[in-house]
Write a protein that binds this DNA or RNA. Structure first.
Length: 106
DNA sequence: TTTATGGCTGTCA
DNA sequence: ATGACAGCCATAA
């Protein structure tokens, strides 16, 4: 058992073509100040588990830098593969792709 | 127990 | 808009 479970569950619930921010996840699990920990939880996410960690981006809608090289590219590729579009600045239109826990996609 | 390290965020210049 | 700083806090050493 670990606090990461809530994070994993939530992230797993993110539908395809949608994204969420670290702060958003943290808030949804009742830990509005744990945005960073969310990042760690995802960073610690084993590849075995099917967790859409790539659907989690920072508050700016950009893919955060991780320890592993090329990971940001992978994340972006996966998102684009799900229909998420990046603008010229390499960021997602949160106002349009951000997942809303209590609302379905339009 | 104390330090160091982050896939962050919000505020200020 | 971008860049620098300071809080936040769980994990690892």
């Amino acid at each position: 058992m670990s606090s990461y479970d809530a994070i994993y569950s939530l992230v797993t619930d993110i539908p395809m073509g949608k994204v969420a921010t670290y702060g958003q996840i943290a808030q949804l699990i009742g830990q509005p100040r744990h945005a960073r920990q969310v990042g760690y939880a995802l960073a610690a996410t084993p590849d075995d588990l099917e967790i859409p960690w790539h659907r989690v981006v920072n508050a700016s809608g950009e893919v955060s830098r991780r320890s592993e090289p090329g990971g940001d590219e992978l994340q972006r590729s996966l998102l684009e593969g799900e229909g998420v579009v990046f603008d010229e600045r390499d960021r997602v239109c949160l106002s349009r792709f951000q997942w809303q826990r209590w609302s379905e996609d339009a």
